[in-house]
């Protein structure tokens, strides 16, 4: 368990982290969501002891990271944004070095390393130089490094950045499988990634906590309306009037127009029992306006921010 109390970090006059408090419970996967520069990395760096906070405390399983660093750091495995790898070492040499750093007992080493390498699937590259590995493998070695010493808490800073979609899914699976035995804090600016693996989400914005909630809770906050994009050919003013008359439609605006082709943004209230999409379809069909595209617009991270902070 990590307790973070009133964390503040100044970089000169800039407040990178401004009074953040939250708790990472045992066995949960906590997502750290926020745009670039929101303070995600800074907060993680402070949680792992890499940076010192200007004020506030980080308590890891009862040990303050500044007062009892050795005890606190024993329980934490950290994968920074740039994996801390030595290109001139082979994977197995590197992991042995990590065992030295984490003070893993000599007898436990072999079994621990083979277990970790199985888990992150780097067995086949264990004798290769890290500098010669692909980005995906480097990332996995980075995760393996965090797992050495069997820490109870894993802190992963954007673990899927720069990986191809297949690798992203692999890493997600790995995080899922690790979540049964670890508390995990994972940061990202990609909403779907957080949604896929996390129990709870902390949303950071400009160094402050904008929201702490479960995924369901967040989507509930956003529910009430959903947005659709409609592209068709015909008269825009006529269609606009007709759509606005339908029940359950909160608003409709023209997003783009090119000659006879129009793009509408339609805001639908979710409280109505009937699906207004059907009504829209029939109205357009009756008017003789062929629909070229009709899809729901997923809420973007920005919209979540706006709805949460605004």
């Amino acid at each position: 368990m990590i307790e973070i109390n009133n964390l503040v970090k100044h970089y000169g006059t800039k407040k990178a982290v401004n009074d953040i408090s939250f708790t990472v419970n045992d066995g949960e996967v906590l997502g750290f969501l926020g745009p670039n520069g929101a303070g995600k990395t800074t907060t993680m760096n402070i949680m792992t002891g890499y940076l010192s906070s200007t004020s506030g405390t980080v308590i890891v399983n009862g040990h303050d990271i500044l007062e009892e660093p050795e005890l606190a750091k024993k329980d934490i495995g950290y994968l920074p944004e740039q994996p801390p790898l030595y290109n001139d070492m082979t994977v197995i040499e590197y992991l042995n070095f990590m065992c030295d750093l984490k003070k893993v007992r000599k007898n436990d080493r072999k079994s621990m390393l083979s277990e970790i390498m199985d888990m992150v699937k780097i067995n086949n590259v264990s004798d290769r130089l890290i500098g010669n590995l692909s980005k995906g493998y480097k990332q996995r070695v980075g995760i393996a490094q965090a797992l050495v010493g069997d820490p109870k808490i894993l802190i992963l800073d954007e673990p899927t950045v720069g990986l191809d979609p297949g690798q992203v899914i692999e890493i997600r699976k790995l995080v899922k499988s690790l979540s049964s035995s670890h508390s995990i804090v994972i940061s990202s600016h990609i909403l779907s990634e957080i949604q896929a693996v996390c129990d709870r989400v902390v949303i950071l914005n400009r160094g402050k906590v904008a929201a702490i909630d479960s995924i369901d809770g967040l989507s509930r906050r956003l529910s009430g309306t959903s947005k659709f994009l409609l592209t068709f050919r015909g008269s825009d003013s006529d269609a606009l009037a007709k759509i606005k008359m339908l029940s359950g439609i909160q608003d409709a605006t023209v997003r783009r127009s090119e000659g006879e082709y129009h793009e509408f943004e339609i805001l639908v209230s979710n409280s109505t029992k009937t699906d207004p999409r059907e009504d829209i379809f029939f109205v357009m069909a009756k008017a003789g306006y062929p629909i070229l595209e009709f899809r729901s617009l997923d809420p973007t991270l920005e919209e979540i921010f706006l709805s949460i902070t605004g």
Binding site: T48, G49, Y50, P69, E70, L71, K73, K74, I76, Y78, P80, Q82, P83, P84, L85, Y86, N87, M98, L101, K102, K103
Partner: peptide, 14 residues
């Protein structure tokens, strides 16, 4: 330069 510095700060060594 390599970013391995972080290991010294985040592991149980001084």
């Amino acid at each position: 330069r390599r970013g391995t510095e972080v290991l010294y700060y985040t592991n149980p060594i001084t």
